[in-house]
Design a binder for these strands. Structure first.
Length: 739
DNA sequence: GAGCACTGC
């Protein structure tokens, strides 16, 4: 289609606000660095024809000092010649802000109704980078430059030509436009993070690029795995995709290792922080630990020891504050990391020091300036997936070399720093993996497989993954989707599956939401699904556990935790006038507001696919229909009481009710939302179900005659026979016409 | 009788 060179831009076809066309002579994809430099230095903004502001010129001077700016000519030479490019650049190179702008000057998307997209793994990054780039380009955010993230579309169709967005958002768009025809160039940023969405997009875009020769693809990454991407995006085996390298702009960080392995990394970490405090020059400390409990504990201990030091010898050390940082902290408390260190006690005594004790959140999501010392024990909590028992769990595991490098880099943002690694150099070299395993190898892929099928991928096992997941993981996902009737026995998407994929939900939740109108309770299921999609709503402050548990008991519905969640949301809604309601009930206001947001989004998707929003009756009858609807999504997550404990059906896993469970008895059959493996295997968010519903609403799965003989099978057979007896000689179990 | 690494739709 675009075999011929498109016509250059000529004056006269644009606005008459100011005479002269800044992009005169620009030929799409033939644009040179000299032309762009001239346009940048011009007085008129080529994209909105307004005069450049004073602020623009000021920012332009700063931009020109970025490492990537010097390489503009090199970039255009490569961009003209190659369809796919890999860019590596460390922090501070300016690649995220500048490369998309370079591309715009070459693509001229505004002149042909196209867009340039740049993806980010995180929402805040998409927003803040878009804001910065809008300023740099001297345009209003949401007009020429915008962003698109869940719950917020800051773009204007027809006007926006540079769009920052989350990778998940672009993947969503691909589901309805598999060739992503709106985009002239797609830039995947932070590709080294290997999020699920980025990985799927890479596989997808590699093939879209074959179908659309005029599409340009840029993969941007931190240094370590560039070669992997170059090989993956090679045109043929012998010519890897070209590499464009941008130097970073950070300060050197000196690395120290321990001589011997540390048996207790938390203790060693605390000791190291105090050693820094006593012996090192002024500068803040960042300590990486694995989770909330560990962090709070370490903060307490560091504080006690530092106060001791100060009391013993007030002239030898300065005052110290210790600030915890993890994602479940309320935003106001997270802000404390930007507080200044405590002041000197008097002009001659040592400077104060700020110590931040953080999870991995400080490795990627949050950057803190002023850190000079990093303490890295070498561990983080990582998700692992066991396809055999279909369980995702969190395990404290050694980090990768790439992660260790990233952590060390946090010490060199404002001046030269030091990083203390609490492991030996030999262990770093020999024991640590190069890269953290990509998410696709560590996750339950039910959702991803449904997305891929919706994207038209026929053969999931042979899809061109950057790293292919274990076949068993794919099989488990296909099996689940087949039982949910999202896929037929040949693996084709069903009509139901097509709608399920449109909901930003796990397949089980999507399924039960879509069938819930049959049970006249979609309003209630919608609320429950929303509550299950947000973080835990229950607050339990350490010093008020008893009060919190009492408040929870008042909101508890004994038939099931799902009903309790429904009750919490409805009670909150009924008490909106009372601003203290959530607080006095030990409920997280933040989580409820999120649930409300999710609920609105899901409701609009329901409207789009004509899933009725109904609510009939109230009291026990309504609650029973809600529990029946739950079965339609979660019939595979059912446990049977045997002697003292529960056993999951089919997998025969021994499980216990989680202590947070609100059931007042131990019913024979329960359905659970999740299986968690902590100190013991637990099932969490649990509701009583009637075994007859299992046989009726999930007959395909409860094909019990073929099951191996055990207590679960015998119990279900008794239920089945009783049902048959009751129904006489009519058709035994009428399956509801739903799927 | 116990948690919740971190994202994203």
């Amino acid at each position: 289609m675009h075999k011929d060179t498109p016509p250059p831009i000529h004056p006269g076809d644009a606005s008459k606000k100011i005479s002269g066309e800044p992009l005169y002579g620009f030929v799409p994809r033939r644009v040179t660095a000299r032309q762009v430099q001239a346009a940048l230095d011009g007085d008129v903004n080529p994209f909105n024809k307004l005069p450049h502001s004073a602020q623009y010129k000021k920012i332009l001077e700063v931009r020109k000092k970025l490492p990537v700016h010097v390489q503009m000519a090199e970039f255009y030479e490569m961009f003209i010649k190659h369809q796919m490019i890999v860019i590596v650049g460390e922090t501070g190179s300016g690649k995220t802000t500048q490369i998309p702008q370079f591309v715009c000057y070459s693509d001229l998307p505004h002149a042909k109704g196209k867009l340039v997209a740049c993806t980010q793994p995180r929402r805040v990054a998409a927003m803040s980078v878009a804001k910065r780039v809008a300023d740099e380009m001297d345009v209003t955010l949401g007009k020429e430059v915008g962003y698109s993230i869940r719950f917020e579309d800051m773009t204007e169709p027809g006007t926006t030509f540079l769009k920052y967005m989350t990778d998940g958002m672009l993947l969503r768009e691909a589901m309805n436009d598999p060739d992503l025809n709106r985009y002239s160039t797609i830039i995947l940023d932070e590709a080294h993070e290997r999020t699920l969405a980025t990985d799927i997009l890479m596989g997808l875009l590699k093939h879209v690029a074959r179908r659309r020769p005029e599409l340009r693809l840029i993969i941007m990454s931190a240094t370590l795995d560039a070669q992997k991407f170059q090989r993956y995006f090679s045109i043929n085996k012998d010519s890897p995709a070209p590499l464009f390298k941008v130097p970073g702009r950070t300060h050197p960080v000196e690395i120290f290792y321990t001589q011997e392995p540390e048996p207790d990394y938390v203790e060693a970490a605390i000791r190291t922080v105090l050693m820094i405090h006593r012996a090192e020059d002024e500068g803040d400390v960042l300590l990486f630990l694995t989770g909330e409990e560990e962090i709070e504990d370490a903060c307490r201990k560091i504080k006690i020891e530092a106060d001791d030091l100060l009391n013993q010898d007030p002239d030898a050390v300065g005052p110290l504050i210790c600030i915890p940082l993890y994602s479940s902290l309320p935003p106001a408390q997270q802000q404390r990391i930007f507080d200044p260190p405590p002041p000197r006690r008097n002009p001659d005594s040592p400077a104060g020091r700020k110590v931040i004790v953080a999870t991995n959140i400080a490795e990627t999501s949050l950057t803190i300036d002023g850190i000079v010392y990093v303490v890295d024990p070498g561990f983080s909590k990582q998700k692992v997936y066991n396809p055999r028992i279909r369980v995702e769990s969190l395990l404290v595991s050694p980090i990768s070399k790439a992660s260790a490098q990233q952590r060390a880099g946090r010490a060199g943002r404002t001046k030269p720093g030091k990083c203390f690694r609490l492991y030996t150099e030999k262990d770093f070299m020999k024991e640590l993996e190069d890269q953290t395993h990509p998410e696709i190898l560590r996750s339950n892929l039910a959702n991803t497989v449904l997305e891929l099928v919706k994207l038209g991928i026929k053969d999931l096992v042979r899809f061109d993954y950057v790293d292919a997941p274990a076949p068993e993981t794919l099989m488990r996902a296909l099996e689940l989707l087949n039982y949910l009737a999202a896929l037929d026995d040949e693996g084709n998407l069903t009509a139901l599956g097509g709608i399920m994929a449109e909901f930003p939900l796990d397949p089980q939740l999507a399924k039960m939401l879509i069938v819930s109108p049959d049970f006249k309770c979609s309003n209630e299921i919608l609320t429950i699904v929303s509550m299950l999609s947000v973080p835990n709503v229950w607050l339990r402050p350490n010093n008020q556990r008893k009060e919190a548990d009492q408040a929870k008991a008042l909101l508890t519905i004994p038939d099931g935790d799902h009903l309790t969640l429904l009750n919490v949301y409805n009670s909150w809604m009924q008490n909106l006038k009372d601003p203290n309601w959530s607080w006095s009930n030990y409920i997280s206001q933040r989580a409820l507001l999120q649930a409300e947001n999710v609920r609105q989004q899901l409701e609009s998707t329901m409207v789009r696919f004509e899933v009725d929003l109904v609510s009939v009756g109230d009291g026990p009858k309504l609650y029973q229909r809600v529990r029946e609807a739950l079965v339609c999504g979660f019939f595979m997550q059912v446990a049977h009481k045997e002697e003292k404990n529960y056993v999951t059906i089919k997998d025969s896993q021994q499980v216990s009710l989680h202590p947070s469970c609100g059931l007042d008895t131990q019913p024979e059959w329960v359905l659970f939302n999740e299986f968690v493996l902590t100190t013991r295997p637990y099932i969490r968010t649990v509701t009583v179900v009637n075994p007859e519903w299992l046989l009726r609403d999930a007959a395909n799965y409860y094909d019990i005659d073929s099951w191996k003989d055990n207590e679960v099978k015998r119990s279900l057979l008794r239920v089945k026979n009783k049902l048959l007896g009751r129904k006489g000689d009519g058709p035994p179990l009428k399956k509801k016409p739903k799927t």
